[in-house]
């Protein structure tokens, strides 16, 4: 496996879905470079329909990409895809979408705690109100504000009743 390419892909891909898309986009880009003729290539300004992906592909060191040849492209990407698939992600349930910077920060922190190959998935669940819930290897744990309300339900209701009495 081309460790450089793998590390390159993982370096700023903190979400598993994102890493898979990037691998696929890169594969298509390289395949396009191999099989599409020069005229068509000129017409196509972007490698993909997604500007962010295009930006990412363009930011990759060409030296790394040059190692991929028509002979090894499929095997390389097969290995990459397998590797990515084998990683068990941490699923983050957030009540709202986070900007990429914050996602990157969280991803960096997680990799600092659990290793470079750590990936996550983000699912939006507005019912959580604030905070987040985590799911890892099939086990779900809720650290959200909603869960805190549920845990302290009796105190909240007691306070409410007190308030209503007075």
């Amino acid at each position: 496996m081309d460790t450089n390419l793998f590390e390159l892909i993982l370096s700023d891909s903190y979400i598993k879905n994102q890493a898979e898309k990037r691998i696929l986009a890169l594969k298509n880009y390289i395949l396009g470079g191999i099989f599409i003729d020069s005229k068509e290539k000129k017409l196509k300004e972007a490698a993909t329909d997604n500007p962010k992906l295009d930006l990412w592909i363009n930011s990759i060191d060409k030296k790394v990409l040059s190692k991929i040849t028509p002979q090894n492209i499929y095997s390389t990407f097969e290995v990459l895809e397998k590797e990515i698939k084998a990683i068990e992600p941490l699923i983050l349930y957030l009540p709202y979408e986070l900007p990429d910077e914050e996602v990157a920060q969280i991803g960096t922190k997680l990799r600092a705690d659990y290793g470079k190959k750590f990936l996550m998935e983000i699912t939006i669940d507005p019912s959580l109100i604030a905070g987040c819930a985590l799911s890892f290897r099939g086990i779900y744990k809720d650290y959200s504000v909603k869960q805190k309300i549920t845990d302290n339900k009796q105190e909240i209701l007691a306070a409410f009743r007190q308030y209503v009495k007075h």
């Binding site: 983050l92 957030l94 709202y96 986070l98 914050e102 920060q105 969280i106 922190k109 997680l110 705690d113 604030a130 905070g131 987040c132 819930a133 985590l134 744990k141 650290y143 959200s144 504000v145």
Partner: peptide
Amino acid sequence: QVDLVYEALSKA
């Protein structure tokens, strides 16, 4: 909001 997420991750 992000701090709350970090707090959850710390607890985890």
